[in-house]
């Protein structure tokens, strides 16, 4: 565990400005830098135009889905255009009530799973990450390797033993197999993510706190977590989105229709071997995108509330 000397040119030396900067960590300063010159304005305009054009390409699938959700099922395939020639608003109403339960039933189920998962990942992964990033203990590298290894096996060979395990615990058809693993930091992706962020926090901060008598608990809660807010936001957002969209494990572990979540509900609109309700599928797909989109839209501002939001003059 010896520290290799860092290439000096790569390491910018913190200066006296840092004290003031740090005292403003919690301050909410809007991240806009006033542009002063006309040239910059033109460049900014071009940048926006480029981004808008690019954004439209990125948005095309969503617009297409939206437009398809207002087409009668047969037209979805016959007319690829973005503007429906024939509007059909019934897809939303039909889709909402087409399944055994009204669609909000599945939205609520998904919300429960997602909330449990987000909470679990935030707490457990950040704790594990703190240990891996800052604590000195025997076998640290080995355990870290074990953790990474656990995400290198494809879900398809893991799911059957998992099912057997959860079945023996009588957890099948409950949300436990979906939430408990998150409470126990099994999402190595996020542990590693936070390890990287924690390690990016200058060690002087916690060394100093240690001198002042802070234990690891306080350092973790009062220094690391606030300083790693972008990482926490990333974890929360990704956990939300990935859990919300996760089909396979929810399909396998939830067997009764009253426990079904949104991804399973969406699948029940289509079937390769019989009549499919494409119109309602598109409508409900749009509905199910709204929560994730909103979470991203509002969550992303926390992505940018790190150390860097301070000290801009």
């Amino acid at each position: 565990m010896t520290d290799t000397p860092v290439r000096p040119e790569a390491r910018p030396q913190p200066t006296s400005g840092s004290r003031q900067a740090l005292s403003e960590i919690a301050a909410e300063i809007p991240d806009t830098t006033p542009r002063r010159r006309v040239g910059a304005r033109v460049r900014g305009l071009l940048k926006h135009l480029g981004l808008i054009a690019f954004g439209l390409v990125m948005l095309y699938p969503l617009l297409w889905m939206l437009s398809s959700s207002f087409k009668p099922t047969a037209l979805i395939f016959r007319e690829p255009g973005l503007v429906p020639t024939e509007w059909d608003f019934s897809n939303y109403g039909d889709g909402w009530s087409a399944l055994l339960h009204p669609f909000h039933h599945y939205l609520i189920n998904s919300a429960l799973v997602v909330l449990g998962s987000v909470l679990g990942n935030l707490v457990s992964c950040s704790m594990a990450a703190y240990a891996f990033a800052r604590l000195k203990f025997r076998g640290r590298n080995l355990w870290f390797a074990v953790m990474l290894m656990s995400i290198m096996l494809p879900i398809h060979v893991i799911i059957v033993p998992q099912y057997i395990l959860f079945s023996s615990l009588e957890w099948i058809n409950t949300f436990l197999p979906l939430i408990v693993p998150k409470l126990l930091a099994t999402d190595a992706f996020f542990v590693f993510l936070m390890v990287q962020f924690f390690r990016g926090i200058p060690r002087e901060f916690d060394e100093a706190a240690r001198l002042d008598g802070c234990g690891h608990g306080r350092i973790f809660v009062q220094i690391m977590l606030p300083l790693a807010l972008p990482a926490l936001a990333t974890t929360a957002i990704f956990t939300f989105i990935w859990t919300w969209n996760d089909f396979f494990s929810q399909l396998i572990f939830l067997t009764r229709p009253d426990m079904y979540t949104v991804p399973i509900a969406l699948r029940t609109f289509v079937d390769a071997t019989s009549n499919s309700s494409w119109g309602p599928l598109f409508a409900m797909s749009i509905v199910s995108l709204i929560p994730v989109f909103l979470v991203f839209l509002f969550g992303q501002k926390y992505l940018v509330k790190g150390i860097a939001t301070t000290g801009i003059k």
Partner: peptide
């Protein structure tokens, strides 16, 4: 009778 249904592809995995 407890129902347990899904689409064709998911059915066989499950």
């Amino acid at each position: 009778v407890v129902p347990d249904f899904t689409d064709w592809d998911g059915y066989w995995d499950k």
